[in-house]
Design a binder for these strands. Structure first.
Lengths: 228, 228
DNA sequence: ACCTGAACACCGTTCAAGT
DNA sequence: ACCTGAACACCGTTCAAGT
């Protein structure tokens, strides 16, 4: 292959750098973040995707942080798109907590970089309002609903950040699981009987089913609290 | 202040570079990772702490990954230190899930960097065996116990990675919460009534109490599943 | 008004050279 | 056998210069 040369040869789809703006930039970022390449959202790569100098982004976003919050909210909004409340509170909460996750997992890079931030924008507000409506329908009072929302919201954000990290880790994560199983072969016989017996089952659990399982446990706990 | 000069003037506590070894290196890393400075574990900083060239670490660990796994297991082992099973399975599981979290939150940098890896070492094995014992005592069969373990294990790892990230974010995270509250003042009146009403309560929830609350919900869900 | 490009202070990692 | 230090290919960000 021929190496990049300092000459400006436009080797990739590049639009005119003059046409920059928040909208164009965000779209380019989402295109780059759609895969599982670990460092897809560097300014240099975004610049290349746009056919512009990396630092041109600073004319449209104060810093990477602001860019990330805008991206994250867009991803949340995409997850919320088409949401309608279910017939029961439990269906609504489950649906919402799967939607936010699914949205973020399409853009794992955005998830890892922004999962612990509050975007304070439209998408997030739609999600919160829908969650509070479902919890209020369930019978929780104002304060209680707020506390349960925080638990659920951080549950989905934390776990989704975790899952996105696994996606970006890719092969390395699968190797971890295999090595985990093999590692018990070298443990003194009988030292960890339960884990030795179950390590294969544990290692074979896929992240998505695990999340759904944990989510059902959480929903079960919320239902139990409602009865008490 | 006088800038660093190329001369070797030993301005910090430095031991002889010849005394390196995994043990010395890991201790230096834990010293550096005990605070909330965002990038405390770079090779250059570890090298400075040891009074050695950064690349000397490669004589003792294959790469940063191997160093991190060793560190993470040590942190898990510290959290497990002194653990004794409770009288009921619920006490044991709660205790274990608070211990791992507490251990990691003393070294937030280790938590963010290694939360999604399997260490395959002693500390982790102790934790898993203790969890499986508690779940078995609860009455779960082999397979079921393995699935519940995975849900609990990833719950604590995901949330702890999330919390550690918040700690490293520091002031920025607190600013997010304040800005979150203020942002609802600029929302069209009546568009998000529930969130507008509750945003102050939601924003004031501290991460530690939130984790404990979610953990109780999860435990409640496990108990409910046990009854079914 | 907006974009460019050199520069700065960082990363993890490699490798030839020292002792 | 182990440590050093220059080098490489990256980061986000700043700022003077261009158009």
């Amino acid at each position: 292959m021929d190496k990049d040369k300092p000459v400006n040869k436009a080797p990739a789809p590049r639009r005119r750098a003059q046409g920059l703006g928040r909208e164009v930039i965000l779209e380019a970022c989402l295109r780059l973040a759609a895969g599982t390449e670990p460092d897809a959202l560097s300014f240099r790569k975004i610049g290349r995707e746009l056919g512009a100098d990396p630092t041109a982004l600073y004319r449209h976003f104060a810093d990477k942080d602001e860019l990330l919050l805008a991206l994250a909210d867009r991803v949340i909004a995409m997850g919320m798109d088409g949401y309608v409340p279910g017939t029961g509170w439990e269906d609504s909460v489950r649906d919402l907590m799967l939607r936010i996750r699914a949205g973020f997992l399409h853009y794992p890079q955005v998830a890892t970089l922004a999962a612990l931030r509050v975007t304070r924008q439209e998408g997030e507000r739609e999600f919160i309002e829908a969650m509070l409506a479902a919890l209020s329908q369930a019978g929780f009072g104002r304060r209680e609903a707020a506390l349960v929302y925080r638990a659920c919201g951080d549950f989905v954000l934390a776990w989704t950040g975790f899952s996105a990290g696994l996606l970006l880790l890719g092969e390395k994560s699968a190797q971890d699981d295999e090595a985990w199983v093999r590692s018990y072969a070298q443990v003194p016989k009988g030292k960890y009987p339960l884990a030795t017996e179950s390590v294969e089952v544990m290692a074979r659990v896929q992240d998505e089913e695990n999340y759904r399982f944990a989510l059902e446990l959480l929903l079960g706990g919320i239902a139990a609290r409602l009865r008490a």
